[in-house]
Design a protein around this nucleic acid. Structure first.
Length: 512
DNA sequence: TTCCGACAGTGGGGTCGCAAT
DNA sequence: ATTGCGACCCCACTATCGGAA
């Protein structure tokens, strides 16, 4: 199959907003793909490269290359050439990778170049990623969409399922079962405004502490232990503590879901930054482990003794977990229901925060494990802080925000009356807000360089955020975590904006 | 040779708009 | 009305490479 066909379909998919039409377009293409094309075509059309590290980003894509006038590249040739790019390492590799990329781009037409560029920078923007590709695959093969989705969750890979499905037809789906040693996409949570709201929605539920660390899925088959991240990366070698912990459990075949955190001498959780740094260290693991030893804390069991627990209610899965994993290695929880459930869960949240954790996750006791989905039966609740900050600048948006000033640079007042930048945000803006702020900020502009519009610091905006973290990037030495716009405060002047001083005082643990 | 900046690729994430149910 | 998905981009961190010191 020619790459131009992919590029063309991708454009057509991007041009329609109807989900059903996107699915039909993808299905048509999948039907036409050769067996050998399938493992390439499917992920490409889902907006992802089938292999891992390429070492090519916006920089090494380099300057525009004169496009070919006629399409000639096949998807298999593209895949082979990209694989070759990824294989180049060592001294001089950046230049060589850039050169190979340039050659590939020169062989591509204008439309193909645009598609490749999007693929490599992760900006396909066709409004169809994995989930829509799954529907398309179902339509192309006549398999029930729910079964395809489930197979993808269990295989942890769209590509694998696609290949089997197109080669053998719908019966191939029966082979995808939960298997110890093969990771499944983890279940995710929605956000609720308060524990009362969450408990009210879910009925009988467990309120569990939410730990601010790295999500892990632990597999043990006899002496073989594997650890996977949320995106199914194998990080077994980076966390030897977890292998040790897994081998000490009274069972030899299981899959557990949990979080990795690090505790200080007093048993209080260390910062997310420290944990993420530890888990990200893969070259000198011993040194990293000595500096930040981590411990696993589990909250769910997906498989025990070869029994698939995914479809069992949480109550039963947790009973299995409790049988296998001793108390300190499980998250703390409280069972609540009925009219006084609200009060009990509020107290649990307060206690959890007092112990230094992030918040709670409220989980329905009767719900199955919805692998790979943001299930409605898990609701996280975290305290939200707000600040009144001043807009210092804004960046031009992309995609559906093209032509709108989008990403705001946020500043807090300092002692000398100037403003210190604390971070940026593009979240929380409605379309109306985007239009309004583009107009207003253009009026306040004092400088523009094509990307950033610097403005007179006159506009006050209320910002919600989850907490402070240390920063080497910003002058105050801190930045906001998950900042988002709540509303503009036209009733406030910049002189009434919050100060760096009060912000630091509100989060003493960060600078201590 | 060593150091440092830039880039790539991980991890963590909230909210909006639209289509479909 | 509600749900699911994709788009919008943020932060920090580590690893790697290339060029400056």
């Amino acid at each position: 199959m020619l790459l131009s066909r992919l590029a063309h379909v991708s454009q057509a998919v991007a041009a329609t907003s109807a989900r059903s039409r996107k699915i039909a377009l993808l299905a048509e293409l999948f039907r036409d793909a050769d067996a050998d094309d399938v493992p390439i075509v499917i992920p490409y059309l889902a907006g992802r490269l089938p292999r891992g590290r390429l070492g090519i980003g916006w920089k090494l894509l380099g300057r525009p290359v004169t496009p070919a006038s006629e399409p000639s590249l096949t998807v298999r040739e593209v895949d082979a050439r990209l694989t070759a790019v990824g294989a180049v390492t060592g001294t001089g590799s950046q230049a060589e990778r850039g050169r190979l990329m340039g050659e590939l781009m020169a062989a591509a037409t204008d439309a193909e170049q645009a598609f490749l560029r999007g693929l490599l920078t992760g900006e396909v923007r066709q409004g169809a990623l994995d989930a829509v590709a799954v529907e398309g695959l179902a339509e192309a093969t006549g398999a029930p969409p729910a079964d395809v989705r489930r197979a993808v969750m269990l295989a942890g890979s769209l590509r694998t399922v696609a290949r089997a499905l197109l080669a053998q037809g719908p019966t191939a789906l029966d082979d995808f079962r939960l298997t110890v040693g093969r990771p499944v996409l983890p279940m995710l949570a929605h956000t609720a405004g308060s524990v009362a709201e969450a408990v009210d929605k879910l009925g009988a539920c467990a309120v569990e502490e939410k730990l601010d660390g790295i999500r892990v899925q632990l597999h043990r088959a006899d002496d073989d232990v594997r650890i996977y991240t949320r995106t199914l990366d194998d990080i077994t070698d980076r966390l030897p503590e977890l292998t040790t912990a897994a081998l000490e459990l009274k069972g030899d075949r299981f899959i557990l879901d949990g979080e990795v955190i690090a505790l200080d001498g007093d048993g209080r959780p260390r910062s997310f930054q420290e944990i993420a740094g530890r888990v990200g260290s893969r070259v000198d693991v011993a040194t990293a482990a000595a500096a930040v030893p981590v411990s696993p804390v589990f909250f769910d069991a997906l498989s025990v003794d070869g029994r698939d627990l995914l479809d069992l209610p949480f109550t039963e899965r947790h009973a299995e977990l409790a049988r296998l994993v001793p108390e300190p290695m499980r998250v703390r929880r409280a069972l609540v229901s009925g009219p006084d459930g609200g009060a009990a869960s509020e107290k649990f949240l307060a206690d959890t925060l007092a112990r230094g954790h992030e918040g709670v996750v409220v989980k329905a006791l009767d719900a199955p494990y919805s692998a790979g989905r943001r299930g409605a039966s898990w609701l996280k609740v975290k305290p939200v802080h707000t600040l009144d900050l001043v807009v210092l600048a804004a960046e031009w948006g992309h995609g559906r925000r093209t032509g709108k000033l989008s990403n705001l640079h946020l500043g807090a007042r300092t002692a000398d009356g100037s403003f210190a930048m604390l971070g940026k945000t593009f979240k929380g803006m409605t379309d109306a807000m985007l239009t309004w702020q583009t107009e207003r900020l253009t009026e306040l502009a004092i400088e523009e360089n094509g990307y950033v519009v610097t403005v007179r610091p006159e506009l006050v905006v209320e910002i919600a955020y989850d907490g402070l973290q240390k920063s080497t990037r910003y002058p105050a030495g801190v930045t906001l975590r998950f900042a988002r716009v709540v509303r503009y405060r036209e009733d406030k002047t910049p002189a009434e904006a919050d100060t760096v001083e009060t912000l630091l005082a509100a989060h003493p643990e960060v600078t201590r």
